[in-house]
Design a protein around this nucleic acid. Structure first.
Length: 827
RNA sequence: GCCGAAGUGGCGGAAUUGGCAGACGCACACGACUCAAAAUCGUGCGGGCUUUGCCCUUGUGGGUUCGACUCCCACCUUCGGCACCA
């Protein structure tokens, strides 16, 4: 028998064209169906699709296709995170306009995506660098501005000199720029911020609602937000009775143990404290040195904790005690109040600092069954205990002490309970050209004036100069900068910074719901139908960055009454990385395999199948060329099975009998349907779903072989083939479509209902049951499926070899699991 | 240091509610077909042994249980995140 070869290239091209022509994956509101929003993180248009992309898209597409067959109204959009530094840098390098460069890349990548057979609704495509998109990014900035959530302030900010721009805290990794890994410096600049800290509490507590988010992502966000409960405590300054130092502590119960006070070098009081004193020169030199040091130098493990006495003293609000005020490099201005009360006996850092600088140590918490003494302590004691040396609070349990001391301070007006977050406001200004301009105008008379909505978008000038390797800036363009003040009409200047690209990606999932809407960023009616995203898929690298920002934006829009969803993404799947030979694919290692090569050599169906089969989606995947071949072999095998069977159907009528072979095949069919459905829907384990389909194909081959002489029952065989094709459709959409049509169907396989299984067909007459003695398998018996426990035990005792093994032994106990095993416990 | 995830054949991985460890695939070996090769098909494939069968085996050591990859305790290793956060 010779059948037509499996020609993936021809099949895939044919169906891709047809799907496009028939607009097969368009989605619209349909209240008669349950909606399902499948979303993969949109790519930055680098121009090249890599295996990581192929993996996310394959995962998303399986879900989208599966859920459509299950009857959901699926929305599955795609777009481009097109603003940002890499485009600008590439543009400088190649001397092309970033817009043109980006457009070319998008065109190419879209082709690559389509060659993978991903079922996107391209009517919903968005491009964040298009004026009709960033117009609304600007609009959202203005919304925040009006709500007091966007503000400008002078602050010490992260500066990456390689990228020639400032960075948000989230974009600094271990003191290095997240994008280019160069050392981040600190600079004192006036910049725009978004008040994400106003939402810290909700961003933290709503994590609990996200039941279907991976624990590790939630934990990372929790840590990033870093909530601490404690108290703000006011210390007066002995030498300046009118001034005070506010300090935050999580341990107000140790207030009587304060033996010194440390200020951050940036603390606004430092200058005043030392002005005109003998300490002035020394302290100010230290301050300026520390401020110049990069974050990485300041926070390095080996960085010594340096502290300098200012010559001034703080007054303990509890007992009036005077303690020295120091300036210390380990105190951060950005956290709490930039001032720390030193309690060496009960804080390890303070302990080390005190020992080094010969500061006194005083024990104020005594643990039970132990007597701490300042002189003999080897480390700080941070645990629980009774308060001592604490005046009227002596003898109090320290946990209660926290409350009592705080209440006392509050009453005296010397402090109050306070919650502090590690999270800082989001710095969104970027000193770069390729981004959405911040829609603000500075007027000498009116001050800071927002661009009126009607004048949006503030468009990027397109005739940009990129020669000479210079970073272009909007400040160079007089035609851009010079503008009339919208309020008074006099000459004014535009803000020349652009917005962080993470702004653009913080709301794109909303724009997809109404990409052409011209009245607002999105049509609330559409958004309320489609949102939230039911399944979001993307890389773990955005655990804090994008995923936190998008949550923040969603909450702001919820508060503005624009959407009903309080959280953007109901379920999150953080897919693993693609490795080869134990290392991340990279040019320098020479272990790169591209989607293009795979599509060309084996076809998209093979590539998709392998990438889904090799590993569960959230785990890292090790690329294996041999494994790809194995998947290709399986598809060819399936192809041949269909083709050969069709020839058989054409040749004769076959058999009409239902023998055990037919029943067995049917059982395999229904078992496969059950498993594949469950594995996709409930478990997202596509690898085991695929293995179940493989088993079904194997079983069908076995059936054909077993019935070679008596002839196959064509109806049963045909049913098995059709079910196989349906199950395969989400994974290998082209091969499934082609086979489906060859089976004589006219309508797309992707428009079919997902097959259901019949539990009756899974029932077997007889089952094999394992007989154990003392937990070890000692034999097997075959019993009727429905047999009583007594019968089961009886058969087990009679089983081959079991009888002799039981001879002369006392049976202590017999445990049975119906249909599975009998365990006879003997002595 | 703190937090999180994970350790199963030569390899990727499976075992869904505590019930036959190793599904499915890769690699390998042998066989069939062939002049030959490729493709395909078939068989075998955790380790050991005194091989009708027995013993060992899911990072290590203990525990619970008739029975543990699965539950509990302690530890080891790897990966990831945070790291002077007061």
């Amino acid at each position: 028998m010779s059948v037509k070869k499996y020609d993936s290239a021809q099949i895939e091209e044919h169906w891709q064209k047809l799907w496009e022509k028939e607009d097969s994956y368009r989605s619209e509101i349909d209240h008669s169906k349950t909606k399902y929003y499948v979303l993969e993180m949109f790519p930055y248009p680098s121009g090249k699709l890599h295996m990581g992309h192929m993996r996310v898209y394959s995962i998303g597409d399986v879900l989208a296709r599966f859920l459509r067959m299950r009857g959901y109204n699926v929305i599955h959009p795609m777009g481009w995170d097109a603003f940002g530094l890499p485009a600008e840098n590439a543009a400088i390098e190649h001397n092309v306009n970033p817009a043109r460069w980006t457009a070319r890349n998008i065109e190419h990548m879209k082709k690559q995506q389509n060659r993978l057979g991903v079922s996107y609704d391209w009517h919903r495509e968005v491009n964040t660098s298009a004026p009709d998109y960033y117009r609304w990014s600007q609009w959202l900035f203005l919304l925040m501005y009006k709500k007091g959530l966007a503000y400008k302030k002078k602050a010490s900010v992260n500066w990456c000199s390689d990228c020639a721009t400032v960075l948000a805290n989230e974009q600094v990794e271990k003191g290095l720029c997240w994008r280019c890994s160069s050392v981040v410096e600190t600079r004192e600049l006036e910049q725009w911020f978004l008040r994400i800290t106003d939402y810290a509490e909700r961003l933290l507590y709503d994590l609990d609602k996200l039941e279907d988010w991976p624990e590790r992502v939630k934990v990372m966000q929790q840590h990033w937000i870093g909530r601490s409960e404690g108290a703000e405590i006011v210390f007066k300054i002995k030498e300046f009775p009118g001034d005070e130092i506010r300090t935050f502590t999580t341990r107000p119960d140790t207030l009587f143990g304060v033996t010194y006070m440390v200020l951050a070098p940036e603390h606004p009081l430092v200058n005043r404290l030392v002005e005109g004193t003998e300490k002035e020169k020394e302290v100010l030199e230290f301050v300026s040195e520390t401020r110049q040091a990069s974050e990485i130098e300041r926070t390095a493990d080996e960085a010594p904790k340096i502290g300098l006495f200012t010559g001034r003293h703080a007054v303990n609000p509890m007992n009036g005690e005077e303690v020295p005020i120091l300036v210390g490099n380990y105190v951060l201005m950005a956290y709490g109040t930039g001032a720390v009360m030193g309690v060496p006996a009960h804080d390890q850092r303070d302990f080390e600092f005190a020992r080094k600088h010969n500061l006194p140590i005083r024990v104020v918490i005594q643990p039970e069954g132990e007597e701490l003494s300042a002189g003999s302590m080897q480390e700080a004691y941070a645990g629980e205990g009774k308060m001592v040396n604490s005046g009227t609070f002596d003898g109090l349990d320290n946990l209660q002490g926290i409350k009592k001391v705080t209440a006392y301070l509050d009453q005296q007006g010397l402090g109050r309970a306070q919650v502090t977050y590690r999270l800082r406001d989001w710095l969104i200004s970027r000193q770069r050209y390729w981004g959405a301009p911040i829609p603000i105008i500075y007027c000498d008379k009116c001050g800071t004036v927002p661009v009126p909505e009607a004048n949006l978008p503030v468009e990027l000038p397109m005739e940009v100069e990129l020669s000479g390797n210079r970073v272009p800036s909007l400040a160079q363009y007089d035609r851009f900068v010079n503008v009339k003040c919208p309020a008074c009409g006099s000459a004014a200047r535009r803000e020349t910074d652009t917005m962080d690209t993470f702004i653009c990606s913080s709301w794109y999932f909303l724009r997809y719901t109404s990409p052409h809407f011209t009245e607002a960023p999105f049509d609330s009616e559409e958004a309320n139908y489609w949102m939230p995203v039911d399944q979001y898929i993307g890389g773990i690298e955005h655990a804090v960055l994008h995923l936190l920002y998008a949550r923040f934006f969603t909450k702001v829009l919820y508060d503005a009454g624009m959407i009903n969803a309080e959280e953007p993404f109901s379920r999150l799947l953080a897919q693993g990385m693609v490795y080869k030979d134990g290392a991340k694919m990279s040019k320098s290692k020479g272990n790169v395999v591209t989607p293009d090569e795979i599509v060309e050599q084996y076809g998209a169906d093979t590539g998709r199948l392998f990438i889904l089969f090799a590993s569960p989606p959230e785990k890292d995947l090790d690329w294996s060329d041999k494994g790809v071949e194995g998947c290709h072999r399986f598809l060819r095998r399936t192809w041949r099975l269909v083709a050969e069977s069709l020839e058989q159907f054409a040749e004769g009528e076959g058999s009409f009998k239902i023998t055990e072979h037919e029943t067995t095949l049917e059982r395999h069919v229904h078992a496969a349907i059950k498993k594949v459905t469950h594995d996709i829907h409930e478990r997202f384990n596509f690898n085991t779903a695929i293995s179940a389909i493989m088993e079904l194909v194997n079983a069908t081959y076995a059936y054909r072989q077993a019935t070679n002489e008596m002839g196959q029952n064509h109806a049963v065989l045909r049913d098995s083939l059709e079910k196989t094709i349906l199950l395969l459709a989400p994974f290998a959409p082209h091969l499934a479509e082609e086979s489906w049509h060859q089976m004589g169907h006219r309508e797309s396989v992707h428009k079919q209902g997902w097959p259901g299984y019949d539990p009756e067909k899974l029932v077997v007459d007889e089952v094999e049951v394992v007989v154990q003695i003392n937990g070890k398998v000692r034999g097997r018996i075959t019993v009727p499926f429905e047999c009583t426990e007594e019968e089961l035990i009886e058969k087990a005792r009679e089983g081959e070899r079991i009888g002799e093994l039981l001879e002369g032994k006392d049976v202590v106990k017999i445990v049975t699991v119906p249909g599975k095993l009998v365990n006879i416990v003997i002595r």
